[in-house]
Design a protein around this nucleic acid. Sequence first.
DNA 1: CGACAGATGCGCT
DNA 2: GCGCATCTGTCGA
Length: 249
Amino acid sequence: MGGTGPGPVTDPRTALLPREFFAGPSLQVAPRLLGCVLEHQTADGLVAVELTEVEAYEGSADPASHSYRGRTARNGVMFGPPGHAYVYFTYGMHFCVNLVCLPEGTSSAVLLRAGRVTEGAALAAARRLAGRAGAAVTDRDLARGPARLCQALGIDRAQDGADACDPGSPLRIRPGPASPPGPPPASPSAGTLPRVSRGPRVGVSMAADRPWRFWLTGDPTVSAYRPWVPRTRPKPVSPPAAEGGTIGR
DNA sequence: CGACAGATGCGCT
DNA sequence: GCGCATCTGTCGA
């Protein structure tokens, strides 16, 4: 547009969240991410979601965090610079995406748990229904839950480490329609947030008492709260060998 | 509706 | 080998 201007491209519709947005602890960043827009550009098209539910995870002080026991090959991105995506694979079939907070060397992050699809709904639905002939999905359920959100956006291990603050990255985070760009105000008295609720995190067995989950109050795309329950062991198809078997010593 | 179990791969002890 | 920051279909009321 107006190709003669030498100035930088600062169209608010294309501006991304600055890296300083993620400079604080995840507990501070998490509620401010609500309403922001995560978008993923692929060869198939663009899908964008407005975030409606997130969870904060800390590092060595948080027993529920993947980085609680230190750095490994899997969680390495959590220890890297802020604003990057930490994508992990779980339950043998699902991906979940976080955005890394705090400076390099520390390891807190915000898990993106749910969102409302604002662009590319048809592509999102096609991804969600792939391999399920005859099934259907409502707009509300397109990105309702962390694994569904990743599937709708086409996020997998290939996006682990992607820089969401880089305009050249296919995976980007930008301010929401109602949230101004720039770093979060230092004052906790900022009353500009939409109505945000908070409560315990979903599905975590450790530190289940910490109310580190944040969501937009009353939003229908927020996932249903499910407390952690002990996992029932799968029943062996064939009974193990009788007493006195040779297994285990 | 709510409750439950199966699916299914990988990281860590 | 165990346990997982989950989702979905099926069962029963």
